[in-house]
Write a protein that binds this DNA or RNA. Structure first.
Length: 276
DNA sequence: GCTATTTTTCCTGCTT
DNA sequence: CAAGCAGGAAAAATAG
């Protein structure tokens, strides 16, 4: 359904991010961009850990892989290490899902050098660590932080249309469950929070152990959420309404006075440092 | 298709 | 003033 007209998307991404939210459906393209943007370097071999992570997110989204069957900790490696993993290693690290990952990665490695025409104001992966010295200007953070949703697998090769999905019958009870990983807003927020090194100042922990966090770029997060839900007219105003509904369910706790600050409640799970 | 949740939209009023 | 926060209502999406 969604055709990815990649070329124009870049610019539209910019538009999206710089528009202040009142873009009544006229701007943002539904669907997604091809997985190119998030690949700062081109070759998987040169990916940083966070790029590997990004790739994994893409895979999970594209193939609807359940987070529970995708042990991210087994992939705390950089591109070089990732590429040196054998098929067996993948199976080991991710079970059946490993098959998909392995093949997808293989695809990627075959495809061309790179795009590298990403963003002129490119930020090096190394600078993502916490610091995030971004001013107030809106930047196209989608390329580095979109934890989600693409309708196409990021296999930039037109040659092999879709060697993936069916080739290996990956939809063994692990893949393609229901609506696996965070399909809920609070989970989406949580996931952004969980990996600060890849979160370029969108949301920030205020108190990690207490589960207090703050939106730094409310509209940007809203846009991201909108992208996830394929809703181009999402705004922080609306997103926050949904957040407020969480109070009653105790997924979030109210935090007085402080703007853009929320706190996970007893019914929110999976956000703590180490815990189930 | 139906039901129960969740989220999205919109809105009025209040607070920072 | 602009941007957030609060919730109520009701429509739209989703999950099952």
């Amino acid at each position: 359904m969604t055709s990815a007209t990649t070329s124009t998307l870049d610019s539209q991404l910019f538009t999206t991010w710089s528009l202040n939210s009142y873009s009544d459906g006229s701007v943002v393209v539904p669907g997604g961009y091809s997985g190119r943007l998030w690949t700062g370097e081109c070759q998987p071999q040169f990916w940083s850990k966070y790029q590997v992570w990004e790739w994994l997110q893409q895979m999970m989204d594209v193939y609807q892989i359940d987070a529970s069957s995708m042990p991210l900790h087994n992939f705390d490696v950089d591109g070089g290490q990732l590429c040196s993993m054998s098929y067996q290693d993948f199976l080991h690290a991710a079970g059946n899902v490993g098959t998909v990952l392995y093949h997808s990665l293989a695809e990627l490695r075959l495809t061309d050098p790179c795009q590298s025409e990403s963003v002129h104001h490119d930020v090096k992966p190394t600078e993502f660590d916490f610091s995030c010295p971004y001013p107030d200007t809106v930047y196209p953070s989608a390329d580095v932080c979109d934890p989600s949703f693409t309708s196409l697998p990021p296999l930039g090769s037109p040659s092999s249309s879709r060697t993936d999905t069916k080739k290996s019958h990956i939809r063994t009870d692990q893949v393609k469950k229901h609506n696996p990983r965070g399909s809920h807003l609070w989970e989406f927020i949580r996931d952004i929070l969980l990996y600060p090194e890849r979160n370029p100042g969108l949301i920030k922990w205020e108190d990690r152990t207490e589960g207090v966090f703050r939106f730094l770029k409310s509209e940007a997060v809203a846009q991201l959420w909108g992208r996830r839900k394929n809703n181009s007219s999402m705004t922080y105003e609306k997103l926050s309404r949904a957040m407020r509904y969480y109070y009653k369910r105790e997924i979030l706790e109210r935090v007085d006075g402080r703007r853009l600050v929320y706190k996970f409640g007893r019914n929110a799970r999976g956000w703590r440092e180490q815990e189930t």
